[in-house]
Structure formats: structure tokens, C-alpha cells
Simulated assay, not measured.
Amino acid sequence: MTTATLNSYTERGYLGNLAKAAGTFLRALFAMAPVTASVSHGMASQRSIVRDRDSLWKLARDFDTLSPSQAAELRNIAGRD
């Protein structure tokens, strides 16, 4: 038989516990999504995709002299949809 114990209790006062409980309650009540999840949709994701592709192209240019096959693979990855 296995027993799992979680010792995550930290020394908090009454107001700290109350604030944590209130925050948890409000997040559950309004079912708020994390900020990163809400930003990942729409124009922000398009900008990040373009920025990532540009950085892959730049990295491929840097690899041209060291490893042409690696540079070709990076260009292939950057060209994918």
C-alpha cells in the first residue's frame, strides 16, 4: 500500500489564507483562463509565428558556412505552414 503525503503548508496568517481562498474562489467562479492562453489566439500568435520564422531564417544564414545541410533543414522548417 502506498501513501502520498503533501507537505505544502507554509506559515501564513489568517489574512493570507483568506486572500488565497478568495482568489481561488473567484477564479473558479468566473473560470478565468490564464493570460498566456487568452493571448495565444488572434494577431499575437500571427506575430509570434512570423518572428519565429524570421529567427529560423537568420539561424539558417548563420549555419550556411558551418553546416549547409543543417541550414537547408532550418529553411525547410521555416517554410512549413
Score class of each variant (00 low, 15 high):
6 L>G: 03
50 V>S: 06
59 L>G: 10
81 D>E: 08
70 Q>M: 14
1 M>E: 04
48 S>C: 03
8 S>Q: 06
31 A>D: 13
61 R>K: 11
40 S>V: 01
54 D>S: 07
28 A>V: 01
19 A>Q: 04
74 L>Q: 03
73 E>N: 09
4 A>M: 04
39 V>G: 05
26 L>V: 15
28 A>F: 04
18 L>C: 03
29 L>E: 05
12 R>C: 00
31 A>Y: 06
24 T>V: 06
52 D>L: 06
4 A>F: 09
28 A>Q: 07
38 S>N: 13
13 G>I: 00
55 S>L: 11
56 L>T: 10
33 A>D: 13
2 T>L: 08
9 Y>T: 14
51 R>V: 10
73 E>H: 09
50 V>T: 05
69 S>G: 04
6 L>F: 10
74 L>T: 06
48 S>R: 14
38 S>T: 14
51 R>F: 08
59 L>F: 11
37 A>S: 05
35 V>Y: 12
13 G>P: 02
4 A>K: 07
29 L>Q: 09
29 L>A: 11
10 T>A: 04
43 M>C: 03
16 G>M: 00
14 Y>W: 12
15 L>N: 09
55 S>T: 10
6 L>M: 03
54 D>H: 05
38 S>A: 10
18 L>V: 11
6 L>D: 05
17 N>R: 12
33 A>L: 06
66 L>E: 13
12 R>I: 00
41 H>N: 12
51 R>I: 10
63 F>H: 12
22 A>V: 11
35 V>E: 14
65 T>R: 15
14 Y>A: 15
20 K>C: 02
65 T>M: 08
76 N>I: 01
2 T>H: 04
21 A>M: 08
21 A>K: 10
33 A>H: 10
18 L>K: 07
22 A>K: 04
51 R>S: 13
58 K>M: 13
66 L>A: 11
58 K>D: 15
69 S>V: 08
32 M>L: 08
12 R>M: 02
14 Y>D: 11
8 S>R: 07
18 L>P: 00
65 T>E: 14
71 A>I: 10
51 R>D: 11
68 P>G: 07
31 A>M: 09
21 A>F: 05
61 R>C: 02
68 P>S: 09
11 E>K: 08
45 S>E: 15
71 A>Q: 04
16 G>R: 00
68 P>K: 01
37 A>R: 07
77 I>Y: 07
25 F>D: 05
12 R>P: 00
24 T>Y: 05
59 L>C: 09
35 V>T: 13
23 G>Y: 01
69 S>W: 07
71 A>M: 06
34 P>Q: 01
68 P>Q: 02
76 N>F: 04
60 A>W: 03
46 Q>V: 14
70 Q>L: 15
50 V>W: 02
41 H>A: 12
50 V>H: 06
79 G>S: 09
18 L>E: 05
53 R>P: 02
36 T>I: 09
71 A>R: 08
56 L>C: 12
44 A>N: 08
33 A>I: 01
22 A>Q: 06
65 T>G: 14
